[in-house]
């Protein structure tokens, strides 16, 4: 049987890995949305993680765990730089400060000859794989549930529901916002590193604005009542284009339509179950 499964895994490898990696990206979006903020820089953070880790692998030959630390750390630093000035302003500012991030990073990669410039970076070693990707996903899901059920999770929900009221109740709102964005950037960076190390080649244009919108649609479709929502949203939207291959050019049309209809008609997403908490009124 193993030959058959090896063949199946070979043929559909990109899809199977894509399911896991996109689910991680969906979770990274969830962390920001759970606190009532919107970041449109998730694809950019993913790209930073991909570039940082690939450069360390290709140029310095560092081991994968070391590389992953950079894949999480560098995007987190960048998130800090972009988000700090917006923390005390309305949520709109974070969204538009991150909207141009992908484009400016693309220009940066293109002009950076050490990282291959416009030619991209090829020959990235094959690391990670099935168990690493899905193991990380399981770990992150477990962590999201643990945090969500704790005092921190309740504070996050309070901020999402009413920022001012949460502040009055003594929650340090800017600190929570900052932490959420930095953690989400780190998660996106790790997803970027996994993706780069299973596809062998990355290029400056791979992390454009369209990808950021696609990541947002994972979370919106799945709903942000529970961390499982974005994961299932990502599974659905990753498998769907493969099933709807004949759609070709109209695939993005569908993505746009999903976002519009979910926000207007199903603001809680497709999977609208809610995380149960200790002490929650039921």
């Amino acid at each position: 049987m193993s030959a058959f499964f090896a063949n199946l895994l070979f043929t559909y490898q990109s899809l199977i890995y894509g399911l896991g990696i996109n689910a991680i990206l969906g979770l990274s979006m969830y962390v920001v949305l759970a606190i009532g903020q919107l970041s449109l820089g998730q694809a950019a953070f993913m790209g930073v993680g991909a570039y940082a880790s690939s450069l360390l692998s290709v140029k310095l030959g560092l081991s994968f765990p070391v590389v992953l630390v950079a894949a999480a750390g560098v995007p987190a630093m960048l998130a800090l730089l972009v988000s700090v000035p917006t923390l005390r302003l309305s949520g709109v500012y974070l969204a538009i400060a991150t909207i141009g991030l992908g484009e400016v990073l693309r220009l940066f990669y293109v002009n950076w000859d050490y990282a291959g410039g416009a030619l991209g970076l090829s020959g990235i070693p094959d690391r990670g794989g099935f168990f690493t990707i899905f193991g990380t996903l399981a770990l992150l899901l477990a962590a999201a549930f643990a945090v969500g059920r704790s005092r921190i999770g309740r504070a996050m929900e309070a901020i999402r529901e009413d920022e001012q009221a949460a502040g009055v109740m003594g929650i340090d709102v800017p600190r929570y916002k900052l932490a959420a964005l930095v953690i989400s950037a780190a998660i996106a960076g790790i997803a970027g590193a996994y993706n780069a190390h299973v596809t062998a080649f990355i290029a400056p244009g791979d992390y454009a604005f369209d990808n950021a919108v696609t990541i947002l649609s994972y979370a919106l479709l799945g709903g942000i009542g529970s961390p499982l929502g974005p994961v299932f949203g990502a599974f659905l939207l990753t498998a769907l284009p493969e099933l709807l291959r004949p759609l070709h050019d109209y695939r993005l049309v569908l993505n746009g339509l999903i976002i519009v209809s979910v926000v207007i008609f199903m603001p809680r997403g497709l999977f609208s179950w809610h995380m149960r908490r200790i002490g929650a009124a039921k």
Partner: peptide, 27 residues
């Protein structure tokens, strides 16, 4: 992957763009 895994082809022509070849060639 599909051409090799499912269609069992003996040789592949393409891809069109250099960027695609950098990703597909190694496979």
């Amino acid at each position: 992957r599909k051409l090799i895994g499912a269609d069992k082809v003996s040789l592949i022509l393409g891809p069109t763009l250099s960027g695609e070849m950098f990703a597909a060639g190694p496979v």
